[in-house]
Design a binder for these strands. Structure first.
Lengths: 211, 211
DNA sequence: AACATTATGGCACACGCTGCCATATTGACA
DNA sequence: TGTCAATATGGCAGCGTGTGCCATAATGTT
């Protein structure tokens, strides 16, 4: 296990937002995730065992499960980051417009983080979503958590807008559907060397969904 | 031996649409499914082992897995029936209107099969979806198959409508989202003794989704 | 340097799921 | 009706996932 000592400047002070321990833990998390993603791309999710991932990442199988509850989750790391970015812009929902418009506007704003198609974030998101597209196991794992995520979204929107429960649910579900359609199209239209613009596709999708 | 084929073509066979064997097989399928559903309602999915379901249904564990690939699938039987009903009306999609309108109209037409809230079909659908709501494992299993289902829908719509790929995807994803929001609201609004009207809620949802 | 906290690894175990084989049941046909 | 082939079932061994428990090593604090 190689350790890039980028930030090993102040060993005596926990001045940073994260201690040495937590940084190291985060690093291990990334390494396992990267290893899992690569193996999944190469041999498929079903064809890859946790033991293989653990060994390739240089940890024991027992340790693997201390970082990720399932092998699928190990691959979804960057997708969760993506969803976290989207959820981050939810504090400033515009209460003057319809819930759906407010949600879509917030999503569009958050998506600017992914304007640069050649950025690391974009490339990783692309890899993960390519896998998600062809791996039912990953979709299943995604759906398992989506309950909580969607429920949280419904809660947030409910407290900010005075609408019927059905309308809130519709706004959330439809907004997510539009986003997912855009994401899938983005994956399809992106080749290895050239990625399309996710914000643009999303904008296009919003327009088409209106009609 | 063979997987439960819904449309089993039995060429030059006895008068009955199904042979004795297949009828018995179907019966066993129903019994296991009912047993699983009941146990899941009582002890939760995680808290129920396949061995328990099998024993309660009067078959061996090995036989259970000849009927259902996973224990979750055993509970989803009636939900698949519901989706089959929805898919049944897809042959007559109105090509004169937008894909989404055509899909929603077809769904609305198919939903008339579930107008009678006290029917067996409705009660079973209600039980299953109540479970789906609180069981991430069932949502995950649902999502695992939804890939295939959605892809098939996209295919059907694509061949009938001359639209951009993105628009087809949007029509499918949004239509399903509206349907699911209606389904969830239906579950929430239905008590044990009194069930709301699913077609009405869906109609309401379509209206709200327009705005 | 001594201590408390935390990370790691190994082991055993329950459970989900599959392949293989042996047996029993069923349907078809002479 | 009796025989034979097809199919359904059950038991068993085995692999993989995931968890609890405990011993040990690494780390941060005083």
């Amino acid at each position: 296990m190689t350790r890039p000592e980028v930030f090993s400047v102040s060993p005596d002070l926990p001045a940073g937002p994260l201690g040495l321990r937590e940084r190291r833990r985060e690093q291990t998390n990334v390494e396992i995730s990267e290893t899992a993603l690569t193996l999944f791309e190469y041999k498929g999710v079903e064809g890859t065992t946790v033991g293989e991932i653990a060994q390739a990442a240089g940890v024991s199988q027992r340790t693997f499960f201390r970082y990720f509850a399932t092998k699928e989750e190990a691959a979804l790391r960057d997708h969760w980051a993506f969803e976290a970015v989207l959820a981050g812009g939810l504090d400033q929902l515009d209460a003057e417009v319809s819930p759906r418009l407010a949600l879509e506007t917030a999503f569009a704003a958050a998506l600017t983080m992914y304007s640069d198609s050649s950025s690391i974030a974009c490339r990783r998101l692309l890899r993960v979503n390519r896998l998600i597209k062809k791996e039912p196991a990953l979709r299943a794992e995604l759906a398992r958590e989506s309950v909580r995520r969607t429920a949280a979204l419904v809660d947030v929107v409910s407290t900010r807008f005075d609408c019927a429960d059905l309308q809130v649910r519709l706004a959330v579900d439809v907004s997510i559907a539009v986003l997912r359609a855009a994401l899938e199209t983005w994956v399809d239209q992106s080749s290895i060397d050239e990625a399309a613009s996710l914000p643009e596709i999303y904008s296009l999708a919003r327009g088409l969904a209106q009609a």
